[in-house]
Each structure stands twice: as structure tokens, then as C-alpha cells.
């Protein structure tokens, strides 16, 4: 009887590991396809050759592969991982299936920052030649998302707020930023408005190697801190009451969780715009596939989000040849059917 139970548990664990492996394969597959597709097709062999010995390719092929395709494809995967991690941390940490980095208002603050940058540079084009819009947007959006994070973190720290007040506070910040952005849109020139709207739809193609390296570094820096809390996160799924009575310092965990989520979200949103849905839907898909054990759920959430975003990046190039559909739009179009399908087949367990 006793051995039996553990055998069953091990079988389930094995299934989960297999699923994770499948997700990794899927992720690599979409990454490769993403690199292959574009206005000029690169074959799988060309890419492989290029990766092994870059000099074997023609100069044009080298430029396409290393300067355009690879960073674009890689940033999709890494942003997916980053937002997936941020999503699973907020959902578990705030014990709310609707919580995501976006309910904390951080990404709306980033949008406001980016809008400010676009409007300011459009007004002062002549005097700001040394500070082009490509720099101003990420810097200002980073600045404002940190400002929003700072507000939330200090609120959490000093108010010893419960999880619901934190969410409410985040939603308040979100609407505040939205109102300020609307005000900016109201006064900005038509050209600036168009740029802002386009930015909010999300765009992976502006990313180059520096962005890939920065986001990867941030992700790899934060990940170990999240992994340290794996057991606590699993335990939290039995409820906050249980966890506190056991002697887990939830307030402290939550404070550092919000700090981690802020950094992850701020750095991903400032480079690619708001690809919001991914941080909500990726973790949910992982939860429905893998269950609540965060040893599998946390990497699963990262991988699911990466797979979806990579697939979305691929579709945004191929759906209408010659036209690049903003990836934020595609993400929702892919994510929603998957999520609804899983809800119907796996029960309403969210």
C-alpha cells in the first residue's frame, strides 16, 4: 500500500517531466522555424552551416541570419520565458488566477513612459538629435515602470497589505497610467499617436543583440531567486492561512516576489511593448497541463509562454506575406483558443 502510493506519484512525475521535454522540443522547433521564415527564405541547412561556420555564408545571408533573424527569434523566446515567470509568480504569490504583471499596473506605467518619450522626441526633434527615439522609449518606459513598482513595493512593505489590497492598489495605478496616457494621446500630434498605438501592440523586430543579452541576463539573474521559493510556492497553493500558520513568512516572500516581477516585467516591456496576455495565459496553460507542483509548473509556465510567443512571432510574419502583424495581437489570437480549449477539456480548475 505504502510503496504503491509513491509509485503512482512517481508515474505522474515522470509524465510531467516528459511534458516539459515536449515543451522544450516545441520551443526549439518554433525558434528554428522563426529563424527560417521571412521575406527571403533561409533553409535549415543554411542556418546550421551559418551557426557552425559563419564565413561559409554570403555577406547578405550573414546579415540576415545574425543581425535580423536570430535576435528577433531569440527575443521572442526569452521575452516569453520572462513574462511567463513573472506571471506564475504573481498568480501564485497573490493567490489570484487573474493576477498578472499587468494587474500590478507596471506595464501601463511602461506604456505611459514610452508615450512620453515618443511625444517629447516628436516635439523636440531638432534639439534632441543626440537622444533619438529608439533610446528614449526604452529608457523612459523603464523609468516609469520602476516608479510604479516602487509605489507598489513601498505600499506592500509599509501597509503590510493583504493580497487583495495589493491587487486593488495595482489596478488603481493601472487606471491612473491609462488616464495619463489618454491625456497624452489627446494632445499629441497624429503621427505621434500612431507611433504610440503601434508601440502598445508589441513588436519584436526592433530588438537586436543588446536587447537579447540584457533580457537574458535579467532572466538568468532573477530565476535562481524564484527557484529558491519553489516549495513555498507549492505550499501557498493550499492557502495563505495554512502557509502562515506553518511559519512561512508570507509578507517577506510577497515583497521580494513583487520586486522580482517588477524587474522582469519592466525590462521585457520596455524593449518590445505590451505583449500582455502572455503572462496570464502561459502560466494557466502550464497549470492545466502540469498541475500545481511548482518544480514542474514554474519551468512549464516559462516554456509555455515562450512557445506561444515564438509561434506568434512566426505567424505574424507568415499570415499575410509582406505585412508584419503586431505580435501582441497574434498572441491573444493564439492564446485565447488554447486556454478556452483547455478549460473545456480539463475542467474549470484554475
Amino acid at each position: 500500500m505504502t510503496a504503491d502510493l509513491h509509485e503512482q506519484y512517481k508515474t505522474k512525475t515522470f509524465q510531467k517531466v516528459t511534458l516539459l521535454f515536449v515543451l522544450i522540443v516545441l520551443c526549439l522547433m518554433f525558434l528554428t522555424l522563426d529563424v527560417m521564415t521571412g521575406p527571403s527564405n533561409l533553409s535549415f541547412l543554411t542556418i546550421l552551416n551559418g551557426l557552425v561556420s559563419p564565413s561559409s555564408l554570403s555577406t547578405t545571408e550573414q546579415i540576415i541570419l545574425f543581425d535580423i533573424r536570430l535576435p528577433d527569434a531569440l527575443i521572442a523566446v526569452i521575452i516569453g520565458c520572462t513574462l511567463g515567470l513573472a506571471g506564475i509568480e504573481t498568480q501564485t504569490g497573490l493567490n489570484n488566477p487573474l493576477a498578472s504583471p499587468f494587474t500590478l499596473g507596471i506595464s501601463n506605467a511602461a506604456v505611459f513612459g514610452a508615450s512620453c518619450a515618443i511625444v517629447l522626441t516628436s516635439i523636440f526633434t531638432k534639439s534632441f538629435t543626440f537622444f533619438p527615439v529608439t533610446f528614449a522609449v526604452p529608457i523612459l518606459s523603464l523609468l516609469f515602470s520602476f516608479l510604479a513598482s516602487f509605489l507598489i513595493i513601498s505600499f506592500t512593505a509599509f501597509q503590510s497589505g493583504s493580497k487583495n489590497t495589493i491587487i486593488l492598489f495595482g489596478v488603481a495605478i493601472m487606471f491612473m497610467c491609462e488616464a495619463m496616457t489618454s491625456l497624452l494621446l489627446y494632445v499629441a500630434s497624429a503621427e505621434a499617436v500612431q507611433q504610440i498605438v503601434f508601440w502598445t501592440m508589441g513588436n519584436l523586430t526592433k530588438a537586436g543583440w543588446p536587447e537579447v543579452i540584457i533580457v537574458t541576463a535579467i532572466f538568468l539573474f532573477i530565476l535562481p531567486f524564484s527557484l529558491r521559493n519553489l516549495w513555498v510556492m507549492t505550499l501557498l497553493r493550499s492557502g495563505e492561512n495554512q502557509a502562515t500558520s506553518i511559519g512561512i513568512n508570507i509578507d517577506r516572500y510577497r515583497l521580494f516576489m513583487i520586486l522580482r516581477v517588477s524587474i522582469l516585467t519592466a525590462f521585457s516591456v520596455c524593449f518590445v511593448g505590451t505583449i500582455g496576455f502572455i503572462g496570464l495565459v502561459g502560466p494557466h496553460i502550464a497549470r492545466l497541463l502540469l498541475g500545481e507542483d511548482h518544480r514542474f509548473l514554474l519551468p512549464g509556465a516559462c516554456l509555455c509562454s515562450a512557445v506561444i510567443l515564438s509561434f506568434a512571432s512566426l505567424l505574424s510574419k507568415t499570415l499575410m506575406p509582406g505585412i508584419l502583424i503586431p505580435v501582441g495581437i497574434i498572441t491573444s489570437f493564439i492564446g485565447v483558443p488554447i486556454l478556452i480549449g483547455l478549460i473545456f477539456t480539463r475542467g474549470q480548475r484554475l
Binding site: 502510493l5 507549492t234 493550499s238
Partner: peptide
């Protein structure tokens, strides 16, 4: 060791996983 009045919340966590993570978290 306190056993609270509210039982573990209804989630898709299983009792086995819960006990295992409890032992390891502590």
C-alpha cells in the same frame, strides 16, 4: 504547530504534493 480553522483551500494541488512540499519548505 497550529492547525487553523480553515482547511487547505480548494485548488488543483494534491494532498501528496502538499505534504511533500510542506516537509521540504520547512
Amino acid at each position: 504547530g497550529l492547525m487553523t480553522q480553515t482547511p487547505p483551500q480548494a485548488s488543483s494541488l494534491t494532498p501528496y504534493e502538499l505534504l511533500w512540499s510542506l516537509a521540504r519548505a520547512l
